[in-house]
Design a protein around this nucleic acid. Sequence first.
DNA 1: TATGAATGAGCCTTCATTCAT
DNA 2: CATGAATGAAGGCTCATTCAT
Lengths: 203, 203, 203, 203
Amino acid sequence: METTQAKPIREKYVQEMRALILGTAQKIYKEEGAQALTIRKIAKQMEYSPGIIYHYFKNKEEILAILREEGFHKILHSTEPPSSLPPDRAMESFLLKFCDNALKNPDAFREVMFDNAPSVLEYTSFLGEPTKYRAVNRIANLLNAGVEQGQFAPCDPALTARALMCSLFGLVSRLVTEKGVAADRRFNLLVTQVKLLMRGLRA
Amino acid sequence: METTQAKPIREKYVQEMRALILGTAQKIYKEEGAQALTIRKIAKQMEYSPGIIYHYFKNKEEILAILREEGFHKILHSTEPPSSLPPDRAMESFLLKFCDNALKNPDAFREVMFDNAPSVLEYTSFLGEPTKYRAVNRIANLLNAGVEQGQFAPCDPALTARALMCSLFGLVSRLVTEKGVAADRRFNLLVTQVKLLMRGLRA
Amino acid sequence: METTQAKPIREKYVQEMRALILGTAQKIYKEEGAQALTIRKIAKQMEYSPGIIYHYFKNKEEILAILREEGFHKILHSTEPPSSLPPDRAMESFLLKFCDNALKNPDAFREVMFDNAPSVLEYTSFLGEPTKYRAVNRIANLLNAGVEQGQFAPCDPALTARALMCSLFGLVSRLVTEKGVAADRRFNLLVTQVKLLMRGLRA
Amino acid sequence: METTQAKPIREKYVQEMRALILGTAQKIYKEEGAQALTIRKIAKQMEYSPGIIYHYFKNKEEILAILREEGFHKILHSTEPPSSLPPDRAMESFLLKFCDNALKNPDAFREVMFDNAPSVLEYTSFLGEPTKYRAVNRIANLLNAGVEQGQFAPCDPALTARALMCSLFGLVSRLVTEKGVAADRRFNLLVTQVKLLMRGLRA
DNA sequence: TATGAATGAGCCTTCATTCAT
DNA sequence: CATGAATGAAGGCTCATTCAT
């Protein structure tokens, strides 16, 4: 009988509505900032009544929590396969790709990396040692290798890796925060930044 | 007649009241965050009535705008007196002092620089040209001079100034976000960052 | 044809659903109070959907009205079979049983007897004459008989019956209102009250 | 100067507004019950906007608390001066006066004594021991004295005092709940009740 | 018959802003 | 100049009720 399919259809609809609400919320967050994100605004933009949102989410906090959680996965768990290039080339490539990657989820980046809640910082902080932030450890490894092979000037790899990361973080942060930086400008900034850093590293 | 003197006196009084209101607002902002800043709270803390604030300011937005403007002075427009040092030394000194300065107002830094509201970005964005962010322009000038004098390798000063700024911004951002980075660690990170950048610039 | 039987079957089903809904409503009311009684909660506890309730009842008010009406019967129309005991024994027994009975439905008692809506008072008021409150009339009859037989001191039976009833009502009211009066304390209070009243009646 | 009087005038106005709000709240409570008492309804009935109520009261709970507190004083703290009459006369007088007193604030009596919220019961419950309800303790004292002097039959004073109180409470409860009991009828009921109880006490 | 998505009204509360005094 | 009473809009949230399916 067809009726046995009613439930999955419902379920799918519910998931779509949740996604719609989350998407709308994210859009508002992105365009107008955290403090402009209200249940009523979400509803209005969806052309629904505010009450309906509470069918799909327990409360506003649940929406915010999910938004944050989603950001987490996008930002912190993106992994580049290890490269077989020489350390300097690998480094340059890694720096570029890291930025590329981060810029694919600009809102998630902001949500996650600008959050100073302890529970979030546990995963995002990288100035101290050790850090759970994979990219920093990756950079440190490349630095070690590059110094060993004489491509990079001698340095403290742990500190220098963090300096490099801060530089990238700074650039990405501005790019995801400032609106309307044209694509070619973005590209130029990125290349300029990476070149500057690579020059700074070289032996 | 006395009346000829009344005006300047009144004018002075008005300026004092504006300063008092702004100071109180800033204090609340600093101690309790942006969302805790209400007209009522300002008035209460001044031991005045809420209405009076509208004698001296058109509305809350005007106060916020000025606060931001002031925050920018602290964050964005802290001007170091032009240095008589050669450009490379001046640059190094400027980069260090810029960070030192920014770290004096960590909350203001976060509030101002992480805000992506258009009204804020008007003052804080610096990836595009021109920018109201003085430090960037200053760096660009130092770059120009340094390149001319052959201390720095040839580069696009506008782009490179922004890359430098992003690097500093990234470091300061993490320092004001991550908790518990020890003072000596902070110092090491700062020195490492600036050295790396200076190496990247040199001819 | 089958259809001739369909109607009674359906009718019976409807009655069962109504009973189920009312029972669930009463349970919630009893356990969580009047303000916790919501259509959603009834439906959830029945594991049905909220909408279905409107198939069986016009609206929430109809459910509440029936709940009240049921409380009415429990409180006001509980009839003890006439006793063959002498009036004084019969009176003592009746007073005790009346309280016992009332205490079996504490919430209903509160709901009905504390209500001062005219529509409710029509059934519950007993200070005036005549009254629809059976127990009062019963007590008056017992009083009459007891006075005639010389067991009770002469008195105005109508007034005295009301005084007796008020005393019982007062005790029961406190017992259904105050929480945590232990069973043995309840018993002692009840016995003390009835003895006091019986002493007051005796010739 | 006249201006020195501005403050007291303001203060008086504030007190009047608070009284107006409380009065309106009480009226709604009395006429429509506790659950119909909303801030909006108070405001609407006063022909004010809801927000203004928060100028005069912290929140709804404060209003409710004051309403309760006022009821408390009226109902629970009315003290009769200790009498120099012999215990039996003093008892009779006390019982009568207690009812008289309670009937002076019929609404308060209902509000306070029919409330089964823990915070209210803390003050109103008297079936257990000890109780904060002064009248009950007063009655117990009179009972003790009367038994000692041989005017009252031996009894458990604590329990008997509660039985007496319940009887009075029952009568008053009905009088404040049932509408339109004529004054002479009230008087007759009261006298009948007290006589019955006094007969029940006597040695 | 039964579902559950959706609405609209209402709840408590906060706040920028206005205005008579 | 200064007050503070008052408003109206908005915020998060709940709920009785309706209706297409």
